[in-house]
Design a protein around this nucleic acid. Sequence first.
DNA 1: GTGAAAGCGCTAACAT
DNA 2: ATGTTAGCGCTTTCAC
Lengths: 338, 338
Amino acid sequence: MKSTIKDVARMANVSISTVSRVLNNPDIVVKDKRDKVLQAVKELNYSPNALAIGLIHKRTKTLGVLIPDISNLFYAEVIKGMEDAAHESGNNLIICNTDNNEERRLSSLKVLSEKQIDGIVFTSEPIFPDSYEVFKRLNIPIVLAATHSLEYDIPSVKVDDEQAAYDATDYLIKKGHTKIGMISGSMLDPISGLPRIQGFLRAHRAHNIELVPEDRIEYGKYLFEDSYKAMKALHTKFPEMTAVFATSDERALAAISYLHEHKVKIPDEVSVIGFDNTRMAGMCFPKLTTVAQPLYEMGSQAIKMLDSLINGVALDEMRSYMNHWIVERDSVKQFNQV
Amino acid sequence: MKSTIKDVARMANVSISTVSRVLNNPDIVVKDKRDKVLQAVKELNYSPNALAIGLIHKRTKTLGVLIPDISNLFYAEVIKGMEDAAHESGNNLIICNTDNNEERRLSSLKVLSEKQIDGIVFTSEPIFPDSYEVFKRLNIPIVLAATHSLEYDIPSVKVDDEQAAYDATDYLIKKGHTKIGMISGSMLDPISGLPRIQGFLRAHRAHNIELVPEDRIEYGKYLFEDSYKAMKALHTKFPEMTAVFATSDERALAAISYLHEHKVKIPDEVSVIGFDNTRMAGMCFPKLTTVAQPLYEMGSQAIKMLDSLINGVALDEMRSYMNHWIVERDSVKQFNQV
DNA sequence: GTGAAAGCGCTAACAT
DNA sequence: ATGTTAGCGCTTTCAC
């Protein structure tokens, strides 16, 4: 059996309040008793029961994290950033996989709430009115990571997807490409879909390149297989393409696979740029040029913001946008007109 | 403020025990009162405080998971398996990154214990005597995943690394290769080092291929950069090599990168086999032939075992070894003698 | 400076 | 069938 504060008190011949004091505010206890208590603590291998403390303080030092699909490599770095920041601020993380599933998301939220977590990080998924209602009812601090909401005032951290997509496209255009294909998330996806398409289009407009979007954009789910099919469709309908902008590294790898398998040289014949800069980007061949998101920092930043909120310190800004940048590796090449 | 059982009792005009009863054992309460309570619960949006319940039941339905480096892609699938199994059995996971760091591992274990988690899954790292002492003191069920201990009786799930390495090597030999290099973890690593080296050697012996281990094995840390250097060293000291056995997919990708960059054709000139079958194995080029570990199942199995232990049901076997198998993709080719 | 006692939100005897 | 009460392990008044 675990020893309790009572056991310590008994062994040290003091009251439980005294034990509590030496644990939380040692200076107000005379050295003599303090030492006896400390001795007993050690001897009994005592450590306080966080449930009891949480019950009193209404604070558990535990944070909830909702992630649509943990197995997605995108989250590896994000979670690490979260975990490090949590550790730093004395918090623990309960990570829940929502499986992109409304029911599971709701049930996770429910138990997290019952377990009296101090706050929640919600990742990647858009915020629909009913989710918002649930958040409000939970009545605890919440921050969004890799997603945001324009309708509701919920703090968030992410990159500026429209601008990042603009920059990726602009980069390709400045490299001499004018026939650029795109593998994108669905138009309805407010993160890796719509804004990135808009950025893609805006860059073309800025360079006076005309295009019919449907001819150059292919939509697909986020996983490899889907993206492979999307690449196939794209290459079929737009064979003149000299570069492709894939809106995630996984999509880019699918594009690369497709091109390799069809003996199309990368980047000599077709350049590929990805998005995310997951660790895979440096492990494939050719190494992937990609739009980097500060994944680790996004994770740690989300936790830091949440911790601030919990401690009642106001945030500088409701929606914070982190810098993105382009990591130049080997999958994009200057295109020389013929 | 969150509403409590008292609020519900007051609104429903019953005692708190009646409320407790309709929540835990509805049938023993007359329909009339039961309905009134349910109504109040709904109206107040009441949900029980898990801290209070945990304090009484000495059960939190929360499990701790220790992982050396969450950002390692190896864990993506493992964690998903754990999370799904945990969800299934009504548990939550507190995941702690230990950073391969003794101090952090200890401090995580300490808070997990204070938070009264019901059990622990410890992954990948070897069990040293002092860790074992800590585990014993914690006095809660623990299971090892992707690691095991021969000295101590701690339940574990993993594959048979020696046999898996044997099979990988045997596979290569049967494909006609006799000059096989190996990129391995350190000899001191009881998981991805020693046993896999032993399996590698045993397969050669079984086929009467003589070799000087130091000439064909290169050691490296588990990350890409290190493995790349290891591959470089290996290729330099063993240029006749026609195949390489990399003891993780990340190592294999490093080998592939090195070969690509040195214009060595894969698998035409050099074959590569990996280990793990992480999602990356299907995303690279050429697609990686690799020894598959059932990552997802290992995760879920670990949680299921832990849950059994917690519920007092004995395990069939202390050390359970899951099946491995070889996933044939495109990185290994029949070698024809010249 | 220290102990006694109330109370955090709940369950589980024990009464009735 | 239901209410009263003790108690889970702790912190925090309130006395002394």
